[in-house]
């Protein structure tokens, strides 16, 4: 096996495994460099000492978290077409499963989203209620202050207290609670589409 044969098999196997083009180029330039550094006249020797390029490719794929299906163990240049059709078939199957399981995942997703959305609304309403009550008490306390001074002072104090609560809670609500609930909905969507998108990435 010469340099070109070695690199071609390596490239084909990595591409079939769905490795990203950046990672494929990294591996190819590494092995190309090895051949050149070992000497142009020693190509056959170098290839022999490196080992089977298909096995090397499988090792690289495994390091990237891609497992090679057992029926594809003997990668050669001739079975390119067959292997590609099986992998696109697998994606088709995944899409079909995704659609068929719609009655299962959709209600779960809808429920989780609805609960999180309800919590968001509740948080916003709570903030609004505090704001309304606080401001109303403050305004109402001014005329009361003249009519029944002790009651007016009490109302003014309560108004300040509730407005303070509102400010503290609003900050927490908009900084922490709303974003985290939003993330929850996004995470639920991601969880459901995960198997589907993984298949997509493997073929891209």
């Amino acid at each position: 096996m010469n340099r070109l044969e070695f690199l071609t098999t390596l490239k084909n196997t990595l591409e079939k495994g769905g490795l990203s083009s950046g990672d494929i180029n990294d591996a190819l330039s590494y092995y190309e460099e090895v051949f050149l550094d070992a000497g142009v006249s020693k190509e056959e020797e170098t290839a022999a000492s490196l080992g089977d390029p298909a096995e090397i490719a499988k090792g690289i794929l495994a390091d990237s978290g891609i497992s090679v299906a057992p029926e594809n163990t003997s990668y050669t240049n001739t079975n390119t077409v067959r292997s590609e059709s099986t992998s696109s078939g697998a994606t088709g199957l995944k899409i079909a499963i995704f659609i068929l399981l719609f009655p299962v995942w959709f209600p779960i997703f809808a429920t989780v989203s609805a609960i999180l959305f309800a919590l968001m609304v509740a948080a916003v309403s709570l903030v609004a209620a505090f704001a309304g009550a606080g401001v109303a008490l403050l305004f109402e306390s001014i005329p009361t202050l003249f009519r029944v001074p002790p009651a007016g002072v009490f109302m003014f104090g309560s108004g300040l207290f509730i407005t303070g609560l509102f400010l503290g809670f609003a900050k927490m609500c908009f900084k922490n609670i709303l974003p985290s609930l939003g993330r929850g909905i996004k995470a639920a969507a991601r969880f459901i589409t995960r198997p589907f998108r993984k298949g997509d990435a493997n073929n891209g």
Binding site: Y30, Y31, L50, G51, I56, G59, I60, D63
Partner: peptide, 12 residues
């Protein structure tokens, strides 16, 4: 050791 063994080491 061969260059093939070294490659994953360098990547890691």
């Amino acid at each position: 050791i061969s260059e093939s063994t070294l490659y994953p080491v360098l990547r890691r």
